[in-house]
Structures are given as C-alpha cells and as structure tokens.
C-alpha cells in the first residue's frame, strides 16, 4: 500500500546507493588528510615511519634554524602572494566583468576569450611566461618596453627578490582572472532590471551604481571568488615549480607553502630536504592555515553580508 508516494520510507537500497561514493571519498580523501596530520608526529626515514616524537617536529619547525626561517618566509610570501592575487583578480576582474555586461559590440566574444587562460595548465602558463615573456635575454616584455620608449622600466623581473613574487602573482592572476570574470558577469547579469532602472530614475551615476547596487548584490559571489583564490594560493606549487624551480628562486623569494612542502618532504638533505616527518609537519601547518583561513573568511563575509542587506 503506497500511502505517501512522494516521501517513501528509507530502505536498504539507500546503503547501496551511498556506499560506493562514501567509501572512495573517505578512503582516498578524508582519511589521507587526517593521516598526514598524524604522520607529522613521527620521525621518519624515507617512507618508513620510525618512532613517535610527539611535538618534536613542530618544535624544530618553529624554533630551529633554518626550519623556522623557511617556514616564516613561506608563510609571509604566501600572504603577500594571496593579497596581490586577490587584489588583481577582484579589482580588474570586476572592472572587466562590469564593462562586458554592458550591452556593447563584441562583449560575448570577450567573455569567451577571457576564460581561455584558465583552461591551460599552470605548468604551461608558468613556462610560457618565464621563458618567453620575462626572460632577460629573449623575453618579449623588455623588448616591448624598449619599443615604446619605456626602457627605464626594464628589470630583472624574475631575478630581483623584490619583484619575483609579484610577477608570479600577476601570472597566476592572468590565468585565473577568467574564472573571476565568469562569476562576476553571471552575478551582474542576475541583478534584477527593476533595481537598476529604479536607481537610474533616482539619478545615480556609474560609481554610485557600483557602490550601492552592484557590489552589495554580488557580495556572496565576491566571497566565493575570494575563498577559491585563498585555497588555491595556499596550496599553490605548480607556478613556483615552473617559473622559479622548486627552490623558490631567487633565494627563496618565491617560496610558498606548496614548494616548501615539496622540497622538505621529497628532496635529499644537501638540496634542502628535511625528511618525511618534517615534511608532514609542514603539510600540517599548511592544513591549519587553510582551515583557519576558511573559517575566518566564512565568518568575515557572513557578518559583512548581514550589514549590507
């Protein structure tokens, strides 16, 4: 007797339906993340875990030279990297998105093209920029600067510790700007026309429009974009590998958590390796930063959202 066909009672088949996804996801996603944290409390010889050392790895990581210096360096670099990328992607991304949502000729093509770099591999983009654009001998950038009479701007872009990290951040922004623009255009498209019209009748100019209508309306999307950038940047490795080797050249100026983790866990001591135990400790600190950051962003934007609405 089917009394309430629309809300059937749970049955055994639910278990079969959930189990495959649940198993794979738990075994190859959730458990490894927890287990990696556990491993950071062990001393290890290669992949063979030797003995429990408690907080030993972390003590070393936070107090002993050069572990402490590398960790702090990677952390501050990562924050700088994140700030630059967030700024460029949100600011320029919003600007372009705002422009191409006006009804004008070619806007659709620009939308399509803007996402093109995002489809490429970070490795490809990194090599492309380090070898063909920023290279001091045959890089195109310096020659273009020369051609337009801006020679004084010519610079050892990737060699100067002061500019190397920002250059990497710009390249990453170049690549993922498309994603930001995609989100922002969709969000702006979704703003109800009545609101826009009403504002126009009230005589709002472009800036006021952005400030009081567009930005508040797409705030949730800004939050999503920022979180995506945050997660991506604090586990970023590929761009450092491609543009500055896994050493984070020059002199660790472009070293991020990802590259520090890779070097620490998988290299020989003479080239900057610290062993798997210490590598796991770096990965745990990285996890901590990501988790705390995620929680922080959520809270920050939640409160902001409430104020604005």
């Amino acid at each position: 007797m089917e009394t309430q066909p629309s809300t059937p009672k749970p049955k055994l088949f639910i278990v079969y339906f959930l189990l495959p996804a649940l198993c794979i996801y738990t075994i190859f996603f959730f458990v490894p993340i927890i287990d990696s944290i556990r491993l950071s409390f062990y001393d290890a010889n290669g992949l063979i875990v030797k003995e429990f050392v408690g907080w030993g790895n972390f003590k070393k990581l936070f107090t002993v030279y050069p572990f402490k210096e590398r960790l702090i360096n990677a952390f501050t670099n990562n924050i700088e990297f994140f700030l630059i990328v967030t700024f460029i992607q949100n600011f320029i991304g919003f600007l372009i998105a705002y422009l191409i949502t006006r009804r004008m000729w070619g806007a659709n093509t620009v939308r399509k093209i803007s996402f093109l770099p995002t489809t490429l591999s970070v490795i490809v983009v990194g090599f492309l920029f380090s070898k063909l654009i920023f290279n001091p001998v045959f890089g195109v950038l310096d020659r273009i600067l020369e051609a337009v009479g801006l020679e004084f701007l010519i610079h050892a872009w990737l060699g100067d510790p002061a500019t190397a990290l920002p250059v990497l951040a710009v390249v990453i922004s170049w690549q993922f700007m498309g994603e930001t623009i995609l989100f922002y255009t969709a969000a702006i498209d979704n703003i109800p026309q009545e609101i826009v019209e009403a504002a126009k009748i009230d005589g709002a100019n472009q800036l006021q429009m952005i400030r009081y209508i567009v930005v508040p309306y797409i705030m949730p999307v800004i939050m999503i974009v920022t979180i995506i950038i945050f997660i991506g940047d604090f586990t970023q490795f590929d761009i450092v590998y491609a543009m500055a080797t896994s050493q984070g050249n020059p002199v660790y100026a472009t070293d991020l958590f990802g590259s520090l983790f890779y070097r620490a866990a998988f290299t020989v001591p003479a080239r900057g390796g610290w062993g798997i135990g210490m590598g796991a400790a770096v990965s745990t600190v990285m996890s901590l930063v990501v988790f705390i950051g995620l929680a922080g962003w959520m809270v920050f934007f939640k409160s902001k959202k409430k104020v604005d609405y």
Binding site: P10, I14, L18, A21, L22, Y25, F28, F29, F30, V31, P32, I33, D35, S36, L39, L47, I227, I231, F234, T235, F237, G258, F261, A265, I276, G279, A280, S283, M286, S287, V290, F291, L294
Partner: peptide, 30 residues
C-alpha cells in the same frame, strides 16, 4: 532528508573546499 543523510551531505560538501594536496604524504604511503 534524514538527519544522517544531511550529515553525509555536509561531509561530502567539505570535499569541495578542502584541498586534497594536504593528504599527499599519506596518499603516497597508501
């Protein structure tokens, strides 16, 4: 939408924001 199902749903959703790279060492060992 039982309580257990909602829990599992959230459990899956966590995978959308947590980067898998954090589990690299353990995955390698596994």
């Amino acid at each position: 939408s039982s309580r257990l199902n909602r829990f599992f749903y959230i459990y899956f959703l966590a995978g959308l924001v947590i980067p898998i790279r954090l589990g690299t060492i353990s995955l390698l060992k596994m």
